[in-house]
Design a protein around this nucleic acid. Structure first.
Length: 257
DNA sequence: GAACAGGTGAAGT
DNA sequence: ACTTCACCTGTT
């Protein structure tokens, strides 16, 4: 559970004193925690939404053995037991990973929080106020002053450009969902501000395309453990899931140095 | 202060 | 096709 929520795929969860995690996805809030083997989800509205978000229909016990048997891969999987790749909303995922450019996790987290606070609708959950993620319309209509308060720097124009593309129908989520990875990636990369890395993150985290394999500085760092280069093909049909284990593990190694 | 942080696009080879 | 560089902001 913890690995899933802190592995850098999502930035909307925080841990309470009692160990439970409180977070927001799209326009819904939830509390999640573990009881033994079980994941408990407390939320208003439909359970189906959260089952989909956590991709609970996917059998990791079946997928994990297909990721190959390289010792480093096995160590990463062992390290991050229970990690799952989430199915987040495409629009939120696009914005989040536009923010990730040349940024670290605390900054990405604060930018997503800033955007939600400045432009997102209020939602009440367990007696507290949260801010859901704003629609493309809201993002595009943000005032000069709000944009300045966002502190996103040069990424703000990428953000609004993506919002415009959604509203004009150039960026059609239903279409991308249907396309195979490579044409879907090309479609995303037509948007100014979405390059190969952000496109792959969006496909993996926002569209459940588990064959998308984002390569960032951490994965490049991990390549040294695979003999200098890392080959997406060697991880099989769900290379994106392998990527997430490896990414999370390498970041952990970096910290303990 | 300089260098850097989960990239991208433009301009140069 | 590959390399270099500017780009906002915040942190070390």
């Amino acid at each position: 559970m913890a690995h899933t929520l802190v592995c850098g795929q999502c930035f909307r969860w925080s841990q309470e004193q009692d160990g439970r995690w409180v977070g927001i996805a799209g326009s819904k809030a939830a509390v999640v925690y573990e009881e033994g083997e079980n994941i408990c989800i407390e939320a208003e509205g439909s359970l189906a939404f959260w089952k989909n978000y956590f991709d609970l229909g996917r059998e990791y016990a079946r997928i994990i053995p297909s990721l190959g048997s390289h010792p480093f891969t096995l160590a990463a999987i062992e390290f991050a037991q229970g990690l799952r790749v989430l199915r987040q909303e495409p629009w939120e995922t696009i914005c989040t990973f536009i923010f990730s450019q040349r940024n670290n996790i605390p900054r990405i987290t604060s930018l997503v929080a800033n955007l939600s606070r400045l432009a997102g609708p209020e939602i009440e959950f367990e007696g507290k106020i949260f801010y859901a993620f704003p629609s493309p319309e809201k993002v595009l209509s943000m005032s000069e002053k709000s944009l300045e308060a966002l502190r996103a720097g040069y990424r703000a124009k990428y953000l609004q450009n993506a919002a415009k593309a959604v509203l004009e129908g150039r960026l059609d989520f239903k279409e991308i969902a249907k396309l195979p990875r490579i044409p879907a990636r090309e479609k995303l990369m037509e948007i100014n501000g979405i390059g190969p890395k952000v496109a792959d993150c969006v496909l993996l985290f926002g569209f459940g395309k588990t064959d998308a394999f984002p390569v960032d500085t951490w994965i490049k760092r991990a390549a040294e453990y695979y003999g200098g280069s890392i080959d997406q093909e060697s991880f099989g049909d769900h290379s994106g899931i392998a990527q997430q284990f490896i990414f999370h593990y390498v970041r952990h190694l970096g910290k303990s140095r």
